[in-house]
């Protein structure tokens, strides 16, 4: 009964929730459209990604070219859609890799404690103190540039962050008596972690990963912008920003603005959805 009253008290006021509902639905709708466009790029895009047209360079958005053209007359809207695949799959791959490492390390550290835990704490401390981008550039300097290296390098940078988050969640989870109950039944450490503890961490972890997805998208775009990630003739969004840059000085802002806005819009939408998603999952799984 007391839990009833506290939970109702803690819930957000009705008006605030409605506003958030609208933001959530708009964001979700936007993301679905972006994903659909990425999947259907060859059919949806009016032009090929690299269709050069020197008769129509530096065009502003208009009827022929929905979002304008760049310095060699490539249609920005089409490039955006074609580039969406790489721009979205990149952070996805990066997160998958980082999650695999991070969740494994974090759970093992929480379960075993001892020197492993200390080691993890030291590594994460170093990673936090060391600028992530610098680390990534270092890895790229050793292994060469390209999208795959950029993804692996960023995954290595993100893994400790996820590991630390997982560790704190796992520690709280392991303090719950049901974990002792499984041990008393004779369930071993490995099975206990994989079958029971990690699934119970999923709701909060998923919300966090969605937010990290936005961050990953930005980081990958940044690397491409710097020339370390995607390489021409790709139309990855970060690379598009970089290529469009040369026009700014002459007053042609569209080739930079369009991919830049796309990145920002996706990141914001992903964050809105992520926060809402984790709220929902958490409330469903709590108690």
């Amino acid at each position: 009964m007391s839990s009833l009253s506290t939970s109702t008290l803690a819930s957000t006021p009705v008006i605030g929730r409605k506003k958030r509902d609208v933001a959530y639905l708009l964001s979700l709708g936007f993301l679905l459209i972006v994903v659909a466009a990425a999947l259907l790029a060859p059919w949806v895009a009016p032009y090929a990604a690299n269709a050069v047209d020197f008769t129509a360079i530096w065009q502003a958005p208009g009827a022929g070219h929905l979002l304008g053209t760049d310095q060699v007359g490539q249609d920005l809207f089409s490039r955006l859609i074609h580039g969406a695949r790489e721009s979205l799959l990149g952070p996805l791959a990066l997160l998958a890799l980082a999650t695999l490492f991070g969740v494994t390390i974090g759970t093992v550290a929480a379960w075993n404690g001892g020197w492993l835990d200390v080691l993890l704490a030291r590594i994460t401390d170093v990673m936090f103190a060391f600028p992530g981008l610098l680390f990534v550039v270092l890895v790229i300097a050793v292994f060469g540039k390209g999208p795959a290296t950029a993804i692996v390098a960023l995954a290595l940078a993100y893994a400790p962050v996820i590991a630390k988050f997982t560790r704190s969640l796992a520690l709280a989870e392991m303090a719950r008596p049901y974990v002792d109950a499984y041990r008393v039944q004779g369930v071993g450490g490995f099975l206990l972690c994989v079958r029971y503890i990690i699934p119970n961490l999923t709701p909060p972890l998923l919300g966090y990963l969605v937010v990290l997805f936005g961050e990953g998208l930005m980081s990958l775009a940044t690397l491409s912008f710097l020339g370390f990630g995607a390489q021409p003739p790709s139309s990855e969004w970060g690379l598009m920003v970089q290529e469009g840059q040369s026009g700014i000085i002459q007053g042609h802002i569209w080739p930079t603005l369009v991919p830049g806005a796309a990145i920002a819009a996706v990141v914001v939408a992903v964050n809105v959805v992520g926060v809402r998603l984790s709220d929902r999952l958490n409330s469903r799984f709590e108690r």
Binding site: P177, Y178, A181, V184, Y196, F285, R287
Partner: peptide, 19 residues
């Protein structure tokens, strides 16, 4: 060992897997 001794815990809210 589990087959020999089992235990019921104090906290009826936390000792079952909520999933």
């Amino acid at each position: 060992r589990a087959k020999e001794i089992q235990m019921v815990f104090q906290d009826p809210y936390g000792s079952l897997d909520r999933r």
